[in-house]
Design a protein around this nucleic acid. Structure first.
Lengths: 349, 349
DNA sequence: CTGAAAGCGCTAACAT
DNA sequence: ATGTTAGCGCTTTCAG
């Protein structure tokens, strides 16, 4: 079957091109009987307007871009679900770009997103991103940008994040309350604002505790971004002369590596080491032992960010910089930090 | 900063539009000194060609679509990584559509993919998809389609899958070899060809075993697609009068639900129930107990499917129907089916 | 309410 | 090697 143009289609059904165009876009200048006829015939003859001709003419692509570090991570995949849900409802298409936490990739994608390819961009910045120049470029081309989860300070636009500082505080406090005396934060990147906030919260709780009890201590480790290296660093932390008895993992991948490392080194969680992780892992409940998490509202973060982006797309005078949404995460206590069940079993052995 | 058109840009640098256009596309008709100048000035003045004007003119979108059931599933997210890797290298953009296993969604996306929006489609069909009419539509519009993981019989095109029958066989055999006498296959959908193949392999191994030992038995359960219902069904299977002592979970989500159900019902894995699951879960190793998996080469499946798609995009005479790649999965034995460590612990309690 | 025609920004034939 | 221009398929004035 040949691909129909609007001209051919119009001729085939004995109408003018503009009538067809207007009818399909549901213009009020067209009688409803005509509209019905056109729509029916379009279905019948399989006429689909060429989206690029339409985009060119209308200067609207009906497409948004999502730029994120990684999709093989439950936080991001859930966020994409949220984004997709609202895009679909709005009749928008979603381009996905994976930066793999490299600034160069991110910049290349962003550059591609100028020039009218997309009507808006949702981004969770890479670990390496420190400058916002590439984003500024976009903004000056009138492409709205919304941060989700990982934002960039020094660039004024909407953001949808979680309460990272508070959660860092809660995580540390939780470990201390469960008897830890020497807690350690494993952070994936000192540059990332969310890690910085989580770490700051952790430090706040730690200092507060130290001020009451000087025997308490703590530390912070920034992991390299290569998996092998991170693994080694974690092993080093655990075998250190004053190794911690409590760990806050700042991301899902870190939590997994901590579990793998402890199992290899024979460190028992939670008896020797208590763990709490920032993560939305679906398997947290069934890990060995089950993992205490700070669970982010990943789907809602994606959904909310997309909703804000569409507000900006739909009315250009919308002030993105005023929108800073915080969706709180929650602490889900499980055995890795409380360890009641396993502690008993250990005693009996 | 205003958005530059090629006309304005050409005037600004004192060249003709065609020179600019050709230079940017690296045409052989242009001297390399001119090319360099043009590229440099484009960077300087931030000229980015409008992709839609280009697509309209060249009848090429430089975009592919990926249609899949779900992204919050480690198999699919890894496959996307593979796809993205080759798309990026080819300078292509990737549109993602999530069918959530609904045929209606899938069809709507596919219809959108005709009309030149994309140069090709990678698809893993929904559970509900039985007819290929929507795909035929695409094909007749000369949009190449490649199946990855989940294909559809009765539609001739390339596919990249894993050895599902064989793995079903291996999974069942593995359970039987580890002492199971009554094994059960939990399948997510009887319609899905991959589930059918896995089930057929399972049955083949089961029948073979029964022919040698009549006391062995087995069953197959098709789970409903709503999570709650599936959970209840799994609980029913486990509490049945002749409940199985071995389970093959046909997908990641099933495995997770089996673990949750057993933990709720107090069924001990692997002592009372051995489990093997088709899954690429990164946390399989650290589950409680660690999960024996049939691990699919998810990244490579995505990558290979994309490579084949690009072959077809690059030379239209390429015969897609001849390409049927099978990338083998492998059995990774862990405690959920072998249970050496935990079995001993139990004895001592 | 319907139709004719200009033009979105680019590419590629064709002319120079 | 570089420039001129028709036209990709659509939308949208503007005229009827």
């Amino acid at each position: 079957m040949k691909k129909l143009t609007i001209k051919e289609f119009a001729r085939a059904i004995n109408m003018s091109v503009s009538t067809v165009s207007k009818a399909l876009r549901d213009s009020h200048e067209i009688s409803s009987s005509t509209k019905q006829k056109v729509v029916a015939m379009a279905e019948e003859l399989q006429y689909h307007p060429n989206p690029y001709a339409s985009s060119l003419r209308r200067k609207k692509s009906k497409t948004i871009a999502v730029i994120l570090p990684e999709v093989a991570d439950s936080f991001f995949s859930l966020a994409i679900n949220g984004i997709q849900a609202v895009a679909e409802q709005k009749g928008y298409h979603v381009l996905i770009y994976l930066s793999h936490d490299k600034y160069q990739n991110e910049k290349a994608f962003i550059d591609d997103c100028g020039s009218g390819r997309v009507d808006g961009v949702l981004i969770s910045v890479s670990q390496e991103t420190v400058s916002a120049s590439h984003l500024r470029q976009l903004q000056s081309g009138n492409v709205p940008v919304v941060f989700f989860d990982r934002s960039l300070s020094g660039f004024e636009t909407a953001s949808v994040e979680t309460n990272d500082f508070e959660c860092g505080y809660i995580a540390a406090q939780h470990l201390l309350q469960n008897g830890c005396r020497n807690i350690s934060m494993l952070s994936i990147s000192g540059c990332l604002s969310i890690c910085q906030k989580r770490t700051d919260g952790f430090l706040a709780a730690l200092e507060e505790a130290i001020s009451k009890d000087e025997t308490i201590s703590g530390s912070i480790t920034e992991l390299g971004d290569k998996h092998e290296m991170a693994m080694q660093q974690i092993a080093d932390v655990l075998q250190n002369s004053n190794s911690p008895d409590g760990i806050v993992a700042s991301a899902e991948s870190v939590a997994i590596q901590v579990y793998l490392a402890t199992s290899k080194l024979g460190v028992a969680i939670p008896q020797q080491l208590k763990v709490v992780a920032f993560s939305t892992l679906e398997t947290a409940e069934i890990l060995n032992p089950s993992l205490t998490t700070i669970t982010q509202p990943a789907f809602d973060i994606g959904k909310t960010a997309a909703e804000i982006l569409f507000k900006a797309i739909e009315k250009p005078q919308f002030t993105l910089a005023d929108e800073h949404i915080i969706l709180p995460s929650r602490l889900v206590k499980r055995q890795s930090s409380t360890g009641m069940v396993f502690a008993e079993m250990t005693l009996s052995m």
